[in-house]
Simulated assay, not measured.
Amino acid sequence: MNGATVRELHLMEDFEAVSLLYADIWGSEPGDSPISGEIMRALSHAGNYVAGAYEGGRLVGASVAFLGEPIGTSLHSHITGAVMGHGVGLALKMHQRQWALARRLTRITWTYDPLIRRNAYFNLVKLGARPEEYLTSFYGAMDDAINGGDESDRVLAAWYLTEPTPSPLEVTELPTGAAHRVLNREGRPEIAKTDAETVLVDLPDDIEALRRTDPGAARAWRLAVRETLGDLLTEGARVVGLHERRRYVIQRTASHP
């Protein structure tokens, strides 16, 4: 993990350092961090998960999670932030996994923005998590450097810890007959109707840059993926993988041809 050391945090000074790190990552003012040191202190004291990743004694990432339902089986990872390009996010997730297994938990859930390609790749391919639910504007509009005022649609991903080795959801060859519901047409989404059993939903090349340079196009992507991926998951379809790091591969169930 490139020398990153991950440990649980218990001191107020550590929680305050995490809050400042999160503010820097999300581009918000120090007093408007995504989570305060006081909340982390309370969660940790109540037996939940708060951990930091360090390189050379410097805080480079952190993760906050709390126990969820079904009680005694599930941990919900609320927020994880890390310096990019250091393998810190993976180190945090593996530490979180071991923490959960030591408490006989069987799954970890978290939400992620389905439009951010690197997050989709990390969750589905690097970790083998399964997208289970589409959550429309889960946190409302979020006006920070990452979300840019966009509505906070999220996908709930589940990581099943009882699998000896989670299967990465990377698709190298598309099934015969796979068809697009959303196609990336010169940077904008194009929605098509299809009755194909395997459905493809393209993603924008860089939604975070698009939110800064072309908010209208970013909004079009949000609505297109909400209408397609969101509806398919609601119908019971399953995301079976990611193809070329740029499109979801979705399998319809037999009851939804």
Rank of each mutant, 00 (worst) to 15 (best):
T111F: 01
S152L: 01
R222I: 03
R130Y: 11
K193L: 13
G187W: 01
L161H: 10
P164F: 07
L127N: 11
D153W: 02
P166T: 06
T194N: 02
R97Q: 11
R212H: 12
A196D: 08
R130P: 00
Y134R: 04
A220C: 05
T162F: 02
A179Y: 01
I116L: 12
P114E: 07
A217G: 14
L203A: 06
T194C: 02
W110K: 09
H180E: 11
D206Y: 08
Y134W: 02
E133F: 10
R188G: 13
V182L: 11
D150A: 15
W159Q: 07
A157R: 09
E208M: 14
F122N: 03
Y134D: 06
A157N: 08
R107M: 15
Y134I: 02
T198N: 11
R185A: 14
T165L: 13
P166W: 11
D113P: 00
L174N: 11
P204C: 07
T194G: 03
P204H: 07
V225Y: 04
P131Y: 01
D143I: 01
Y160I: 12
Y112F: 15
V125G: 10
Y160L: 13
D214I: 01
A218R: 04
V199T: 05
A100C: 04
T106N: 05
K193R: 14
S152W: 01
T198A: 08
P164M: 09
L223C: 06
A218N: 09
G177R: 05
A209E: 14
E133D: 08
L174C: 11
D143L: 02
N184Q: 07
R97I: 00
K193C: 07
G177C: 04
D143C: 05
P164I: 07
R104D: 15
T162E: 15
V171H: 13
E133H: 13
L183F: 14
L101T: 03
L124H: 03
Q98K: 07
P166Y: 09
N123M: 10
A157W: 08
L183M: 11
Y112L: 13
A100P: 03
T109K: 07
R219K: 15
T165Y: 10
N119P: 04
D113A: 02
E163P: 02
P168R: 00
L203R: 06
R188N: 11
L124S: 09
T172V: 12
L200M: 12
I191G: 02
D205H: 13
A196K: 03
E173F: 02
R130H: 14
A100Y: 08
E190D: 12
R103N: 05
D150Y: 01
G149H: 04
